[in-house]
Design a protein around this nucleic acid. Structure first.
Lengths: 223, 223
DNA sequence: AACTATACGGAATAGCTTTCCGGTTAGTAC
DNA sequence: GTACTAACCGGAAAGCTATTCCGTATAGTT
């Protein structure tokens, strides 16, 4: 079922040559085996698991891995193609069934599930390791447009501030969703919600409150 | 000038034995040289620069590095001791001169300067690499108390929500401050401010706005 | 059945961290 | 000053992993 998907991904990653004569059958088999193996290994050991762990499980040599997926990010993209598509579909669904702000926050929760589940993905996104260089780019290119739709709707409804782009929101959420040793994923979710709260229109309440308790504050200062 | 500081740091990191007879003079020299070298190298190549780069610059063998600083985090802590102290002093100063909310946000900006300047520090904090394991712990232990003071003042003044701890704020800010390829530090600062906005009291304005433009929202939905 | 472009496997290379130990030296005792 | 020893040093060695390279094998074609 994931076969066509996988092949497509691998093709775009591995084959930039003459599409007239398609990939050999054994090559196609190996690509599928590698992606399947990588999916399992990534889930257990994170996206920077040793290459050999993947090739052993796929029953191929390391050369085969590097031929089809020159950079680690190519393999990750192939593995996640499916989940990314689902995330995009979810955005359209939410846009059609929920009110603007709820659609926005619900999708963000959905996105967090995706990022948070893949152990180490959020980390890889910002690792600085050249092997992952165009992974963020790819994810942003795919996901920013659909989020932008939700975001624009919220902004038009005066529900969200207008000075932050969809790309920025995605990047920030991805940062916040990085696993923290000693904290459960629920922590990241709570922090992300704080961030989303900050995305609502800058409130008059802020200034109001400041003024209202200005005297109290001064009292505290003096003490 | 930083000599005593460095020595103190190194002692706590490197010597767990009989304090009656102090460290030999050459050992002390080497520790200072290593920390000085590391400070320079960290600034240029990040906190995970090759060990040899540091030992070469310090003019010692790698064995000497690992003897004094078994884990990378020991070296980082030694290098940053001074900056951490400054950060703590700043909190006291802000608490005495600024109103609660301003003290809080100003100190956060100060903290961001610290974290953001050290290339790769924010990254190391959440890398998962065991070599950095107790670095977050150490930073939190040192900084959480002073932030908690500022935060409590803001909460007492009804300026900030009460359901988030100082440790959580520090962790979240550190996450947000991680360098993003292709983005300038100003980006992280903007996102951190959004987060801080979300830290203000959950506002009636949110519900208000929802209700007020509820019809509009529904209109948009139907279209 | 022969032929060739394509693909395979894994040895080889390279770069890094971390350990280990024979040799050196600072500090002390006489 | 000399001798002694515990502390310390340097860098070779061991152990990882990523990535490249090329002689060998084979799928698909004629």
């Amino acid at each position: 079922m994931a076969a066509e998907l996988v092949t497509t991904a691998a093709l775009s990653a591995a084959r930039s040559t003459d599409p007239a004569r398609p990939q050999r059958a054994d090559a196609r088999r190996n690509v599928v085996a590698l992606v399947e193996a990588a999916k399992t290994v990534f889930a257990r050991s994170g996206v920077d698991a040793p290459a050999k762990e993947i090739t052993d499980r796929a029953g191929v040599g390391v050369g085969t891995l590097y031929r089809h997926f020159p950079r680690r990010s190519d393999l990750i993209v192939a593995v996640m193609q499916h989940e990314i598509d689902e995330c995009i579909e979810a955005a359209e669904e939410f846009a059609n069934t929920l009110r603007p702000w709820e659609a926005l926050t619900t999708w963000i929760e959905r996105f967090m599930d995706f990022v948070g589940t893949k152990r180490g993905l959020a980390l890889a996104l910002h690792s600085g390791d050249p092997a992952y260089d165009d992974l963020p780019q790819h994810l942003l290119d795919r996901l920013a447009p659909v989020l932008q739709t939700l975001l624009t709707r919220a902004v038009d409804g005066k529900l969200a501030r207008a000075d932050i782009t969809a790309r920025e929101v995605l990047t920030a959420i991805a940062l916040i969703c990085q696993p923290v040793p000693g904290e459960q994923p629920i922590f990241n979710q709570r922090m992300a919600r704080v961030f989303m709260d900050g995305l609502t229109l800058p409130k008059r309440s802020r200034a109001e409150v400041d003024i209202r308790i200005g005297n109290l504050a001064s009292d505290v200062e003096r003490s």
